[in-house]
């Protein structure tokens, strides 16, 4: 287990323990993710064909189409969304879906930022624990 320093851009309401889907590649939710089943569609992405549904999806930053906000909202509606998003930096394109869910639908999709060094510390980890307060998360090697 490692404990990493992080910033909770949007913190969960309760402590949560979820499977981690990690990658070094930025992603475009539009064209890069299938909203219907939560799988990565972009063959250039390290998580190609893996599902992010109900997992903490870690990618360094968002890229590509600004349709990401709408795709994430639809994934939340279809219950295919990730349980949390972990980035080195979160631009407004990625933050839009979680912020609108929070204010308009009273649903929380936690968003967490890590320094590049701490982010690299997630590689190979299987599970993360996220907390409603504080500035740390825990990552585990086994489920």
């Amino acid at each position: 287990m490692v404990e990493l320093t992080c910033t909770y851009v949007i913190a969960p309401r309760e402590p949560m323990r979820v499977e981690l889907l990690f990658s070094h590649d930025p992603i475009s939710f539009f064209g890069g993710v299938n909203a219907a089943d939560g799988r990565v569609l972009d063959y250039r992405h390290g998580n190609y064909q893996h599902s992010m549904t109900d997992k903490a999806f870690a990618f360094p930053f968002g890229k590509g189409s600004s349709g990401a906000g709408l795709v994430l909202m639809e994934m939340e509606r279809l219950k295919t969304a990730p349980a949390a998003i972990i980035n080195i930096r979160t631009d407004p394109v990625i933050l839009t879906g979680p912020l609108i869910s929070k204010h308009f639908h009273d649903q929380l999709l936690p968003v967490i930022n890590l320094s590049p060094e701490d982010y690299a510390g997630l590689e190979g980890k299987k599970v993360v624990e996220l907390f409603p307060t504080g500035n740390t998360l825990r990552a585990f090697n086994q489920v």
Partner: peptide, 25 residues
């Protein structure tokens, strides 16, 4: 502006100022 090409064009070629705003922000 939203739409990734509009954002890049308006910032870079026109010199107006926008962040990458995603729909529906």
């Amino acid at each position: 502006c939203a739409e990734s090409n509009v954002i890049a064009f308006v910032n870079s070629i026109v010199g107006a100022r926008t962040n990458r705003y995603a729909g529906p922000l």
